[in-house]
């Protein structure tokens, strides 16, 4: 009786190898996407913190009587030329006709970034009067945005005295 010895790999072995390979690839893929989410989250938080500081610094310079509420659900950042914090953005020229606004026409890159995450802001002002000419305004600044279906918020405070 002659015995034949078979060499090589069978289809079953290949299928098992493929399954093991796929099982290894899936967690690696998840790791990459999680890392991307973390970077995006950190980027948006830093950006929101800067927006909060911008509002607080502008508020410090405003006439006291003009510090007013921007009620919830908030105003979109960008797209409105008359917005007192984010309307007129740049002006490399020498008069107001050359002002660049935070809109699709003048700042397309930044505007699409803001729209992608739907950045909004809200301002809540409460006044405390100590005497007839001594009032303090507590200004709470909220920056809201979305990452996919998840809502995010950044909050900061500034106190302005009359």
């Amino acid at each position: 009786m002659i015995r034949t010895k078979s060499y090589g790999t069978t289809l079953v072995e290949i299928v098992i190898a493929i399954a093991i390979g796929l099982a290894a690839i899936v967690p690696i893929s998840t790791m990459f996407s999680q890392s991307n989410r973390q970077v995006t989250k950190s980027q948006n938080f830093s950006f929101a913190a800067a927006l909060g500081r911008r509002i607080s610094q502008h508020t410090s310079q405003m006439p006291f009587s003009e510090i007013a509420n921007v009620p919830l659900p908030g105003a979109a950042i960008g797209g409105t030329k008359t917005d007192r914090y984010f309307g007129a953005l740049l002006n490399p020229g020498t008069d107001k006709s050359q002002i660049k606004y935070l809109d699709e026409t003048d700042m397309p890159g930044l505007c699409s970034f803001l729209k992608k995450y739907n950045f909004k802001y809200s301002v809540s002002v409460s006044s405390v009067t100590f005497a007839s000419d001594d009032t303090v305004k507590s200004v709470a600044i909220y920056i809201m945005w979305k990452e996919g279906a998840k809502d995010f918020i950044y909050q900061t405070h500034v106190f302005i005295s009359s």
Binding site: F47, R54, Q57, S60, G109
Partner: peptide
């Protein structure tokens, strides 16, 4: 007394203000 600082590095933006 108020300066707005607009910074862009690749696709990252900064809209800071300093009083």
């Amino acid at each position: 007394r108020l300066v707005d600082i607009y910074v862009r590095s690749l696709e990252s933006y900064g809209l800071e203000s300093v009083y």
